[in-house]
Design a binder for these strands. Structure first.
Length: 465
RNA sequence: UCCUCAAUAGCUCAGCAGGUAGAGCAUGCGGCUGUUAACCGCAGGGUCGUAGGUUCGAGUCCUACUUGGGGAGCCA
């Protein structure tokens, strides 16, 4: 590694470095040769683009061996940088020496041609070597950094909420069971039910579906917190927007109401879009050219416009006035269906839109009851193309109302004692939201399937690798 | 969980009205003095997802299952 130069540095400095000698190490993306010279497109992982290596029979002593190499082989090249203003690539490396690190094989599954995303999912361990996936996963990394940067710069404390939890309380979806009991012979209680008091944690536990309740407690200490980690849902959903394991960003802010919540969501989304455009320009250029032709236009539109804000009641009126035929009837009290959300974001607003103040019957127990007694201070951000990307709310800070709601929904007050303590000892109005990290990444890149923005996606009947 | 479409060579696909399989790319060999998904020639490569059924005969028709895509619900 000592003298190795990264391809990214060559691309950044090639004009000043013309005529100099470099050592480059990487993997062959394509290779083509004639009897006395040939070309290698080499990628070393540091940069989206490949560097072209020129090798000639009278310049290197192993020309025949190099010309026979298969795609995927790894090589170490020593050569001189030459600027090529009239060619497709800005510069190339004239090889003086090429050493084979590891040969590939004709069986290498990635060939220099187009593969379907479906096929590439079956070789998830190799797909990061393709253009599209190298762009996706570098942007994923940059976007994760953008999220931390946004919150850290604003004084938020990053809280690691537990992955394994005994709270079955959020009702956000089915949980994966975590247990060390023998599935063929679990201990039973006197009624014949499985006795989880004998289990590892002495109680029924599962993988978290949300860190929100835990984050709220830390919010009552730090004022501004966020979580950013994996989340698990054992739902048998089979769509391009759902995965069993996904990452979620959940900020929580104290002394703040739903308007502050929306402002935070809007600022955050704009910040990460700008950050990724600034820090992964080659990758974003690729997405705009090959994945989604209207990507830049769409993102610019988001950066420049103020997001719309409408109430649920307005939304119902807009949908009813649209005269559009919907498969699901629209009436006050109905949950907004995908077709309704699409109409609002894509046809009516044509940009991201917050919908707030939903009927209390269709929302979660912790959301703050509005003065009308019928709606809660919930907010969903709908974006064109992806749908719901943020779901959040102002939290109920009044103990009596919160307890009434828990009882009304038939939930067990005892399980929420610690949560309700937050309302007993210095309760303040506060709010927060959850951003689906992969959905934001899909919106950012134009990729249309969540399985293609997670390195090793987990979905029903699929946990390979 | 429901609806719908699909599964043929390593990959992408064709195979019309049932008569035992084709192309391009990839691969191997050969050729070519600047390529850009290089090009030209030759060659190898498939028990047509699995199990049944109908038929003289099934890649093709029927049933079930498996896997994958798309949509719905649920949500992020």
């Amino acid at each position: 590694m000592g003298n190795r130069t990264e391809v990214k540095q060559l691309f950044r400095n090639y004009k000043e470095w013309a005529g100099e000698e470099f050592q480059i190490m990487g993997w062959i993306r394509t290779i083509r040769s004639s009897s006395v010279f040939g070309f290698i497109e080499l990628n070393d992982g540091s940069f989206f683009q490949n560097v072209q290596i020129v090798f000639e029979e009278d310049k290197i002593d192993n020309f025949k061996d190099i010309a026979k190499l298969n795609v995927g082989s790894s090589v170490c090249v020593i050569g001189v940088l030459e600027v090529t203003p009239n060619a497709k690539q800005p510069f190339e490396i004239k090889a003086k020496e090429i050493e084979v690190e590891g040969e590939s094989s004709p069986l290498y599954p990635l060939q220099k041609k187009r593969h379907s995303f479906e096929y590439l999912r079956t070789i998830a361990h190799l797909r990061p070597r393709t253009n599209t996936f190298s762009a996706v996963f570098r942007v994923r990394s940059v976007m994760a950094h953008a999220i931390h940067t946004f919150f850290q710069e604003r004084g938020f404390v990053y809280v690691h909420t537990p992955i394994i939890t005994g709270n079955d309380c959020e009702g956000a979806g089915e949980m994966f069971r975590v247990t060390t009991l023998d599935p063929t012979d679990p201990p039973k209680d006197q009624q014949g039910n499985v006795d989880f008091s004998k289990d590892f944690f002495g109680t029924m536990t599962g993988l978290t579906v949300s860190g929100q309740l835990n984050a709220e407690a830390y919010c009552m200490a730090f004022g501004k917190v966020y979580t950013f980690g994996p989340t698990f849902r054992a739902e048998n959903s089979h769509t391009a927007r759902h995965a069993s394991e996904f990452w979620m960003v959940e900020p929580e802010i104290a002394f703040a109401d739903i308007n502050d919540d929306m402002a935070l969501g809007e600022d955050m989304l704009k910040f990460i879009i700008q950050y990724v455009l600034d820090h992964a320009p080659e990758e974003m250029e690729f997405f705009n050219n090959f994945i989604d032709k209207g990507l830049f236009e769409r993102l610019d539109n988001v950066l420049e416009s103020k997001f719309d804000r409408i109430t649920y009641t307005d939304a119902i009126n807009i949908l009813q006035a649209s005269k559009k035929e919907f498969e699901n009837p629209v009436f006050w009290g109905c949950d907004l269906q995908t077709e309704h959300e699409r109409f609002l974001a894509e046809e009516y607003c044509k940009k991201p839109v917050f919908v707030i103040n939903y009927p209390k019957e269709i929302k979660a127990f912790y959301m703050r009851l509005n003065d009308d007694g019928k709606t809660v201070a919930a907010m969903d951000l709908l974006v064109p193309g992806v749908g719901e990307i943020i779901g959040g709310s102002q939290r109920e800070e009044r103990l009596d109302i919160l307890e009434d709601t828990i009882l009304r929904l038939g939930m067990d007050l005892k399980e929420y004692e610690w949560y309700n303590d937050l309302r007993r000892y210095g309760s303040v109005k506060h709010c927060g939201f959850g951003l689906g990290f992969e959905r934001a990444l899909m919106y950012m890149t134009g990729m249309t399937n969540i399985r293609d923005v997670i390195p090793y996606p987990r979905t029903p009947k699929s946990a390979d690798f």
